[in-house]
């Protein structure tokens, strides 16, 4: 069954908020685990939509990429910008 976009977005945001005390960045795999019956590509579409809405941001080390809630964790402002 295809994912319901709005419900999936809410679930992802809820998951990130619940974990926000201990984690500010998540691997893509952390989100696919939330939707065990969905294909990875569907989950990716939801995350992409959240990025477009500026609720989520990409964090990249250069070699690996993670997702985080916009504003969570150490931000660019703390990095001298």
């Amino acid at each position: 069954m295809p994912l319901d976009m709005e419900a999936a977005k809410a679930e992802i945001m809820k998951f990130c908020e619940q974990k926000s005390k201990s984690k500010s960045k998540f691997y893509f795999n952390d989100f696919t685990k939330l939707f065990p019956d969905a294909k990875a590509r569907e989950v990716k579409k939801v995350l992409t939509a959240l990025v477009q809405e500026e609720k989520m941001v990409f964090w990249s080390s250069g070699s690996t990429t993670m997702y985080g809630m916009a504003g969570a964790g150490k931000q660019a402002a703390a990095e001298g910008e």
């Binding site: 964090w59 080390s61 990429t65 985080g68 990095e79």
Partner: peptide, 20 residues
């Protein structure tokens, strides 16, 4: 050098690597 960052161009998750 610090490691990584959130910078990029809008909608892209790659192509830019933050270095501070």
């Amino acid at each position: 050098w610090k490691h990584g960052g959130i910078v990029g161009v809008f909608g892209y998750g790659g192509g830019v690597i933050g270095r501070y």
